[in-house]
């Protein structure tokens, strides 16, 4: 193989797109609540298991991976089930760990603690239910080199992940900027009280933000597990990375999360190759700190919808 630049770029963008998908969940919730949902990584993990078991359940028996339309269908089922599981998990989280506190007007710190508690509960429950070994997603298609671009080998799996992530990112961007729900979300993000006066149901909008973020994280979890296998602890590191991506781009800013995710993926990919793969995380966080020193609100600035 020749120059690995193209390869590293493609790998970085692929994992970065996943970070972006997860980061959107942080950003949406932050937008409406001005809170970091620290249990978001667990939503991602539960989505991965949801998708995995759904795919395994409908996978026809026999040797070899299915092909053609069956593969497309299976992947779609996995992604949809992952999204559904993530949405349900996020909904449950909002009901159990956030809403009761919101009703009582609890201080910020209480939300943080209750989210961490919910996170521990979720991953320990998952460890008990799904086992503490890594669990692979079954082969839903024959993975191999699909195309070669500038010396980079692009596998079928990479295409599936990147295409799905891209589609989701575009859909969310459209939803937030051009639909009625998006308008409500932006209104609540800007000024919750004022939005209420204008007839926006804030509770509903908050639930919508959680569900939307959960769906993205769940589907992202399934995509992530196709490459890295699922395990009950899988939510932690990608959760932190996505949080980093969200802050890097400007927390609360949808396009910022996408930019932050892609950038983080690229930095990790090249950094891991040029220095040492063990320094990957160090490089990622060094970049974050450097950016925040220069631009404390992130690259595109905080705030959903419009600049603060």
């Amino acid at each position: 193989m020749g120059d690995p630049v193209a390869q590293l770029a493609i790998d970085g963008l692929t994992v970065g797109a996943l970070y972006a998908v997860i980061a959107l969940g942080y950003t949406l919730v932050y937008g409406v609540l001005q809170l970091i949902n620290f249990a978001h990584g667990e939503v991602f993990m539960l989505g991965a298991f949801g998708g995995l078991y759904a795919a395994r359940g409908v996978l026809p028996g026999g040797d070899g991976a299915p092909g053609g339309l069956a593969s497309v269908g299976l992947v779609a089922i996995g992604i949809a089930a992952g999204g559904l599981a993530g949405a349900v998990a996020a909904l449950g989280l909002e009901r159990a760990a956030y809403r009761p506190l919101r009703r009582r007007g609890a201080p910020r710190l209480a939300y943080l603690i209750s989210a961490i508690g919910a996170s521990m509960f979720a991953f320990n429950l998952a460890g008990k239910e799904f086992g503490r070994q890594n669990v692979p997603v079954p082969d839903l298609f024959t993975n191999g080199t699909l195309l070669r671009v500038a010396g980079a080998e692009i596998s079928t799996q990479t295409v599936v992940i990147a295409a799905t992530a891209l589609a989701m990112l575009l859909a969310v961007d459209h939803l937030v900027s051009a639909t009625r729900l998006g308008q409500s979300i932006r209104a609540v993000a800007e000024d919750a009280e004022c939005a209420t006066l204008h007839g926006v149901d804030v509770d509903r909008v908050i639930v919508a933000a959680f569900v939307l973020g959960g769906m993205l994280a769940g589907a992202g979890g399934f995509l992530y597990a196709m490459t890295f296998n699922a395990s009950y602890t899988m939510g932690f590191v990608p959760g932190i990375k996505a949080f980093t991506a969200a802050v890097l781009g400007g927390i609360g800013n949808v396009r910022g999360a996408v930019l932050g995710g892609l950038l983080l993926g690229l930095v990790e990919s090249f950094g891991g190759y040029l220095l040492d793969a063990a320094y990957k995380d160090v490089i990622a966080f060094a970049v974050l700190i450097a950016v925040l020193l220069v631009r404390p609100t992130g690259l595109l600035g905080a705030r959903l919808g419009r600049a603060a």
Partner: peptide
């Protein structure tokens, strides 16, 4: 030789290995 703490993500390491031929 290379040493790498468990990381789950072996994509860039794999690129490095393949580049070493």
């Amino acid at each position: 030789h290379d040493g790498l703490n468990p990381t789950k993500d072996y994509t860039s390491e794999a690129t490095k290995i393949i580049a070493a031929g």
